[in-house]
Amino acid sequence: MSGLSLKYEVPGDDFTRAGEASSDVKRKLKKLGYDPDAIRRVAIAMYEGEINMVIHAGGGQAFVTIEPERVDIVLEDHGPGIADVEKAMQAGYSTAPDQVRSLGFGAGMGLPNMKKYTDEMTIDTEVGKGTTLKMTVLVNHKS
């Protein structure tokens, strides 16, 4: 079976619409009968990625490929890039502005959560150019 490929535009600066892509992917996986744990991991990792793109990058695009054994998520933005990836990966480290914190974000858990919930994650980032984040969730493989 060839994979199902999905593409989403993630709006910049609109917190009310952030999460639409991950919710849609969640619904599709549910309909396809995927394991609830895998669905949860995909949805959380992708939502964190979407929120990051809204907070930091002015939006971007999400590409999702659904296959029987794995779900691949690619998040691409043309934002400012991540200056210190190692720091950004530390739980609790955040550069989110205060107004974002008042919404309940900016806990510095975004990237750590994505790492926690996925089986593979790579960050390709360049300051001033943007960031491409690739994540894979293996189905029936608890991380």
């Binding site: 917190f15 009310t16 952030a18 999460g19 609830p36 949860r40 959380i44 939502y47 964190e48 929120i51 919404l103 309940g104 974000f105 900016g106 806990a107 510095g108 858990m109 975004g110 750590p112 959560n113 926690k116």
Partner: peptide, 24 residues
Amino acid sequence: DLLSWVMARAESGDVWLTVMGNIN
């Protein structure tokens, strides 16, 4: 109340106690 924190820890089937009543 910190959404990402909750996302990392809350389990399926939990009652979630919070003061955050926004769309996120």
